[in-house]
Computed example of a mutant assay.
Amino acid sequence: MTEPTLHFTPCNDAAGGHRMAWWQWGNPASPHLVMCVHGLTRQGRDFDELVKALLLRADGNVRVVCPDVVGRGASDWLRDPNEYQLPTYAGDMLALLAQLQSEHPIATFDYVGTSMGGLIGMVLAGNRELPLPAPIRRLVLNDVGPVINPEAIQRISAYVGQSGRFASVADAAAAMWSISTTFGPHTPAQWMELSRHMVVPASQRSADGRAKVAPEAGVEDHAFLLHYDPAIGTPLRALTPEGIAQSEAIMWSLFDGITAQTLLLRGAVSDLVSPATAQAMTQRGPRAKLVEFEGIGHAPTLVAPDQHDAVISFLLSP
């Protein structure tokens, strides 16, 4: 399968519900599920290169699902921006897992999460009372941990929601690169491939935040928008030092409850996960295996062969 198929799952919220989009690769009947969840402003197609390499190594005998977390990509936008938080995201993943389980039973469940996606993974893996169809067997945390440096929060808060309008996909890609150089070196082709799924023609996004399948007849696209709700940064900008400290305590408790084999990936110059936090994660809870990538900050995109090979070798090892 060279391209994924797009699906939707209905999810609950206080305002009457929303749809979460997700991309499916591989063998939908495989009992081995790998879920890949993206970072704060990204979307599920970020994992294309990783998934293609994984399917090649696994002879296609794995089911890979990459959600667009609500407010991003082809998913709906929330009516209340204050709900763009981990409890909502984790609840949506449980709804998705229940749907996947009803379609084809899950025997082996692995999880890959970048940044925000990793935090969602810690919630799912660390809370043993959640109704997972199968325990998370192997967990990949891509440049994220229980402690997030306040300076990184400030840096990210400064650009989240500053979506703007762009005359072309190339213009949007250039604007995104200006705030994404911490991702590390990428060829122009690699960056364009990552960027093209991050924008949508203005005619394909309705006023209520629903992504349209196709542009309206007779409407020409003269502008492109970033493919996420500008309001996703609202809870982030509302964080206080007290709130951050409370969140860290909760996340450490969840991390300590993880029983899955855990791989921690870190950009060696990451401003989000400090060396001290990374070392602590190797010594407590699941005692994560740490792999660092030189010359990379927050966060490795898993496009480069050495990056996706580290993930695939971990997931497919006996």
Rank of each mutant, 00 (worst) to 15 (best):
P185T: 08
V160S: 07
A158L: 02
V199P: 00
N149E: 14
L194G: 01
E193F: 04
S195D: 01
V160K: 06
G145D: 00
N149V: 14
R196S: 06
P146I: 00
I148D: 00
P135V: 03
M198Y: 13
A134D: 11
A167T: 04
A170L: 12
F183W: 11
A125Y: 11
S168T: 15
L141A: 05
A125T: 11
I179P: 00
R128T: 07
M192N: 06
G164W: 13
Y159V: 14
L139K: 01
E193P: 01
A158H: 07
M198G: 03
H186R: 05
L132R: 06
F166V: 04
A173Y: 00
I148E: 02
M192A: 14
G161Y: 07
I156S: 01
A173F: 03
L139A: 04
A173S: 13
A125P: 10
L141N: 09
Q162G: 13
S195W: 00
M176E: 09
P133H: 03
S157L: 01
A175I: 02
L139G: 00
R137Y: 01
R155N: 12
P146R: 00
I148L: 13
P150H: 02
Q190N: 10
L130I: 09
T181A: 10
V169E: 13
P133V: 04
P146F: 02
A174R: 08
I153T: 11
A175H: 06
A170V: 15
R128S: 10
T181V: 13
I179A: 03
R128Y: 01
W177F: 11
L194E: 05
P150W: 08
P188H: 09
P135D: 01
V199L: 04
L130S: 08
H186M: 07
N149M: 08
L141P: 05
L139I: 03
A158T: 07
A167N: 09
L139F: 15
A172V: 09
D143G: 07
R155C: 11
I136L: 13
I153Y: 05
P131Q: 11
G164R: 15
I179H: 05
T187E: 12
H197N: 15
S157T: 06
G145Q: 02
A175D: 05
S178R: 11
I136R: 12
R196L: 06
S157H: 06
S168D: 13
A125I: 12
S195F: 00
S157K: 01
M192Y: 09
W191C: 02
A134P: 06
T181E: 14
T182N: 10
P146A: 13
R137K: 15
A167R: 10
I153Q: 10
V144P: 04
A175P: 02
R196C: 03
D143V: 03
V199Y: 00
H186W: 03
Y159E: 08
G126M: 08
R128G: 03
I136F: 13
W191V: 00
D171C: 07
S157P: 05
Q154P: 01
N142Y: 08
P188E: 08
L130A: 08
Q162A: 12
T181I: 05
I153N: 09
F183C: 14
